[in-house]
């Protein structure tokens, strides 16, 4: 252990394997993000519905899939669902029979539960007067939702969405427990072959770090694009050093989430 704990030759050698692992991690991020988001909309509507039983059902879904640790959800889907006879015989067994399908299902359900809350927070933050004004103008409810409420909700919820996506990516590191060779699993197998505790794990960590920060940059750009009509205000804010940043901090305090 002299000087650098990283064996550069080994790091170079394991780069292709690590890139393959990153690809798997990226797929396991992208698919559940899409599926979870698609699932989150109906559940969010149910959660905000006036019908009590529907709202309660949606709340139960959110409480369970948000409150249970991801590792347990993964075990539950992977080991638990195989127990159900009807499922084993049914057509969905193609999905639940493979580790990859199970991981996608568990991650999507978890992400959907978080996204219901993000969406709800964004939608509740839309000022009521704007909705009333749209109704007064005779815009249909569907169009109000698509063109008035959602664009605002996205702006209000963007920070929370970014936090959720970032912590979700870090959460995917556990899929190696159901035999999927993602980035963490690749690092682990290199460790098992070489008994070098630092090089593979630090390299994988660097990959995750880069992935997460690219996503963060992407969200930053998206946020700036969404707020492009406020460009002058931002420039004016920047003219007052310190204070502006400190003020904006206030609203972010609840947002520092892992």
């Amino acid at each position: 252990m002299n000087g650098l704990p990283i064996d550069l030759a080994l790091a170079w050698e394991s780069l292709p394997a690590l890139f393959d692992g990153l690809k798997v991690t990226a797929i396991l991020t992208a698919l559940p993000l899409l599926l979870g988001l698609a699932l989150a909309f109906p559940i969010c509507f149910a959660r905000m519905s006036d019908r009590r039983w529907l709202a309660l059902l949606a709340e139960a879904f959110v409480t369970f899939f948000r409150g249970a640790p991801l590792l347990i959800l993964l075990y539950l889907v992977y080991y638990g669902l195989g127990q159900i006879e009807a499922l084993r015989e049914g057509p969905f067994w193609i999905l639940f029979g493979s580790p990859f399908g199970c991981a996608i299902v568990a991650l999507s359900l978890n992400h959907a539960a978080y996204m219901v809350e993000v969406l709800r927070g964004g939608l509740l933050a839309v000022p009521h007067g704007i909705v009333e004004a749209s109704e007064a103008l005779g815009i249909t409810r569907r169009n109000i939702f698509i063109w008035v409420k959602m664009p605002l909700a996205i702006r209000y919820g963007l920070k929370a969405y970014q936090n959720e996506v970032v912590s979700f990516i870090k959460g995917t590191a556990i899929v190696s427990v159901v035999t999927i060779t993602d980035l963490t699993a690749v690092a682990n197998s290199i460790f098992e072959q070489t008994y070098d505790p630092f090089t593979p794990i630090l390299c994988a960590a660097a990959f995750y770090w880069a992935f997460v920060n690219i996503i963060r940059l992407g969200f930053g750009l998206w946020g700036r694009w969404l707020n492009r009509h406020n460009a002058e205000d931002v420039a004016a804010d920047a003219g007052v050093p310190g204070r502006g940043a400190a003020l904006r901090r206030t609203s972010d305090l609840g947002q520092v989430t892992p």
Binding site: A187, N188, F198, N213, P258
Partner: peptide
Amino acid sequence: SIFMGVPSLLVIFLTFYGGSAMLGA
């Protein structure tokens, strides 16, 4: 930046597998 951008699982593995070597250093 490092510890907010890296999965906790990797940090756990790093301290578990590499902890003795780090203490040794």
